[in-house]
Amino acid sequence: MELPLDDPIAPRSPRRGAAGTSQAPRLTVGGLHDDRDAADFLALNAAAFAHHPEQGTLTREDLDARRAEPWFSPADVHLARLDGRPAAVVWIKRAPGSATAEVYVVATHPEAQGRGLASMLLTRALEAVRQDGARVAELFVEADSIGAVRLYETLGFRERRRHVQYAAQGAAPRATTRPVEDGEG
């Protein structure tokens, strides 16, 4: 899916606490700077992607390898905590000087879903890379992730290409959306 970053991205606010609570949890947002951030990211990632065979098994070594890449910036990871507990994350991947920003990870802890945290973090992250010179954002999402696709579409992302991965006999194929290259489609 793809989103032009020509115009400012309007910020979104998270929704108040869960029904029946009298006090909203304290929300903080930071980057991926130290060991605590890394541990919180990995715990959140594992909970959010428990169903996903690759993303849900990300290890500290995997994370450290990504942090060593030239495209990594701690400021491009937007890690939200509610009352000090990891709740949601948006990670943007952008090569230095590139006009394209990839939405690399969007995850919300199952206990924090439905509060608008992913939307709030994603608009914040996209506006930051837009102000830093990115002209387009792209992302790859499994088409059967209906909630994620709906979120991206409400923010203006549009499908540019669909890839179908074939599954074993009797299993449903998984489709992912990919951006269309210039001159395609």
Rank of each mutant, 00 (worst) to 15 (best):
R16S: 15
G20L: 05
A43E: 03
W71Y: 15
A118M: 04
D83Q: 13
D182E: 15
L151N: 09
G97V: 04
E142C: 02
A38R: 14
Q169Y: 13
T21C: 00
G156V: 12
Q131R: 15
H51D: 11
Q23N: 06
L139S: 03
V90P: 03
Q55F: 05
T100Y: 04
R158Y: 11
G17N: 11
L122K: 05
D132G: 14
F41Q: 00
S22P: 00
L117C: 07
R178L: 15
A46P: 03
R161E: 10
L82S: 07
I92T: 08
G183N: 12
A50C: 07
D40E: 11
T177N: 07
L5S: 01
E61M: 10
L82F: 04
G147E: 04
L32N: 05
G114L: 09
E102H: 12
V149F: 10
V105D: 00
V29I: 15
A19Q: 03
R158F: 02
P173W: 04
L139T: 06
G30Y: 06
I146Q: 11
L44I: 01
A125N: 12
T21Y: 00
E69S: 11
S145E: 13
A125V: 06
P8T: 04
A168S: 12
Q165P: 02
E61A: 15
V129P: 04
G147P: 02
N45E: 00
R26M: 05
A10F: 05
A99C: 04
I146H: 14
A95F: 13
V29C: 04
H33K: 01
R130N: 09
G97M: 15
P86W: 06
R26V: 09
L63R: 09
H109P: 08
L42S: 13
Y152E: 03
P25S: 09
L5D: 07
G183Q: 03
R162W: 08
F140G: 13
R174P: 01
R15G: 11
P70L: 01
A46Q: 12
T21I: 00
H52L: 12
L139G: 05
R135M: 08
Y166T: 14
A171N: 06
P179F: 03
L121D: 13
G30F: 08
S13T: 15
Q165H: 10
A80Q: 06
G116P: 08
L32I: 07
